[in-house]
Design a protein around this nucleic acid. Sequence first.
DNA 1: ATGAAAGCGCTAACAA
DNA 2: TTGTTAGCGCTTTCAT
Lengths: 385, 385
Amino acid sequence: MPRVRCPKCNNIEGILKAGIVRYRQRYYCKKCDYHFIITIVKNKNNQQSKWNEKQTSLKDIAQVAGLSITTVSRALNNRPDISIQTRNIIRELASTMNYQPNIVAQSLVKRVTHTLGVIIPSLETTIFSTMLSGIHEIAAKAGYKVIICVSNEKHETEIANLQALMNNMIDGLLICHTNQTSSFEHLRSHIGKRIPIVQFYRVALDLPVPQILADDIHGAQQVTEYLIKKGCRKIAILLGSKSLSISQKRLEGYKIALQKNNIKIDNKLLCHIDFSLEMVVEAIEKWLKLTPKIDAIISISDKSAVQIIRYLKKKKINVPDQIKVFGFGNEFVGEFIAPSLSTFDTNTKLVGEEAAKLIIEELITDVQILEPKIVAGKIIIRDSA
Amino acid sequence: MPRVRCPKCNNIEGILKAGIVRYRQRYYCKKCDYHFIITIVKNKNNQQSKWNEKQTSLKDIAQVAGLSITTVSRALNNRPDISIQTRNIIRELASTMNYQPNIVAQSLVKRVTHTLGVIIPSLETTIFSTMLSGIHEIAAKAGYKVIICVSNEKHETEIANLQALMNNMIDGLLICHTNQTSSFEHLRSHIGKRIPIVQFYRVALDLPVPQILADDIHGAQQVTEYLIKKGCRKIAILLGSKSLSISQKRLEGYKIALQKNNIKIDNKLLCHIDFSLEMVVEAIEKWLKLTPKIDAIISISDKSAVQIIRYLKKKKINVPDQIKVFGFGNEFVGEFIAPSLSTFDTNTKLVGEEAAKLIIEELITDVQILEPKIVAGKIIIRDSA
DNA sequence: ATGAAAGCGCTAACAA
DNA sequence: TTGTTAGCGCTTTCAT
């Protein structure tokens, strides 16, 4: 029995348990023949009102129940080595005292936080928030919390975020790189360490880190082949940063399709941009000056594709008759623009889900799967092509 | 000096410091006349490789430096009461040993996690991810992390999320209620306790909890008045759940505008839905059967508004000539649909930013501002009205 | 079945 | 300027 002091004679010996009253242990002091119940000591410090509302801890419960902290912990954790009686008393007490375990303390001792860190380039782009949604959904199901860091497409912010997360806050990290990220040293120093990492969507292919990819090669290939079948021969393609898997792979798929159909690859038809409206416009203007005229544009994002369509409309260029336009991502807007946008649905939510599954799997089994996983997508034909 | 044991004679007394070699304290044992440097003890447990990569702790640094943990802590926290020399040694050592403070331990002792919890109904709706983006931006600037919980518009999930967050994980909570939330008991029990709460966008108006609102009344009023000015008299309005501030306030603004212009309020023109496409269609179909014919529809969201426009187009009803359509939210899609969507820009990102500012302010100053704060928006006129 | 004690990594009051 | 000690709330051996 833990040390209990008689409130009357202040004696510590000769204190006996004397039944339970309203879930509280009642005591009897032999020396002064006194019955008492230990009441929770209220914090009389009134300066900061909100700190009075201290969370009840195991200690508080233990004190009231007249049991040791250990026993209370065991009861609350459903350990077998405890009598059903005390277990029930403690659980009842915990609920009346509104006990909530302090998970920070739990994390410290267990060295597990059940929290996943996610670094994404933006929250205001549909594909990213959709992937995040997928991640969150799986994480929540598996009992993991999700803590987000937005890099705002800035490499330095990505590095800073990484730094900020790698201090025992998280059990695992999911990362989707910035558009400008071309060096991966910041990641390299964390590979194989305590915290598992998974790259998704935009990944560094040659890094020994598990990765989940959209089906970029096949997607781009399918789209390009479709356009060729429709008679296009001068197909321009708008890409993101050169160092990103997403650009590389889509370019690869594009090239495969052209080669298969014996169409020469024209570097003037390739353009790497960072997706600001100005750069989109700049790219189109450059393309429109070419002869022979281009007859199709594949855009790496639906948002840009939609802007392209609008620009072409303004220039009185008919879509799809003169130029066909194809997007990537199947965002909401594509269905509503006129002409409605043909696009490759990369299944972004599933990409997020798979990424979360992969890392949780690794956390549970401690097995790493380095083979990149590709999430299938599908081509969606609408009016713009 | 902390206890140092001579590796040769295993003696603990008579050990002297003997200079510093490569940032490490060198010792001299008087008894056996032996110089030594303490090396970090490697974990030889090879079962789980990744646990070998234990983070270096203050203790490790202290041991290597031959100083106490306290001193190391002080040096790393830039406390004034430390000699510049040791400070530099320790910092250098920390960086070579790649020290990262364990913020879980810090949180436990400081009782502050620098983490904000956010409960939102969805991540796949632009307004919510935009608000989240605003929250995150401000939080990041103030050095707070953000942990997200998605309620999926389910009341029970909201309750579960709340429960999951209220266990010392977070310093403050930002909540945007579910479409179906009508009882707020789950929140009530946390009001005034240790963790401050801020409601945003969709709030329970009568709860004594700080709140950030979009300018729903004025927004709806402005929109309605604009439509009236354009000659509309039978203006239908599509709303969300009755218990939400957002529906109530927008309805209020709508009614004010009608009353001001002596137009009788017709309950058949009001419709509360949950935003599934089916319900949108159902609502329109009901309205289209009315005589005299409706001449305008105000939708509580741009997404629904866009669906309305498409439906009307399909039914060969001219927008805006026969029926004008107005949305709320100024989402990306509105600019691209034909006819382009007139909308009330609720400035959602700013709503998020203000919510984050409010709670961080409260965390820092411990002052609560219960006066609801309204974030101004602006009406955007395009082709649909 | 229950309790004492150690320890997770860190901070802070008090000593020296 | 530095070290000792206690303690944050919890889990986990090891006794009993």
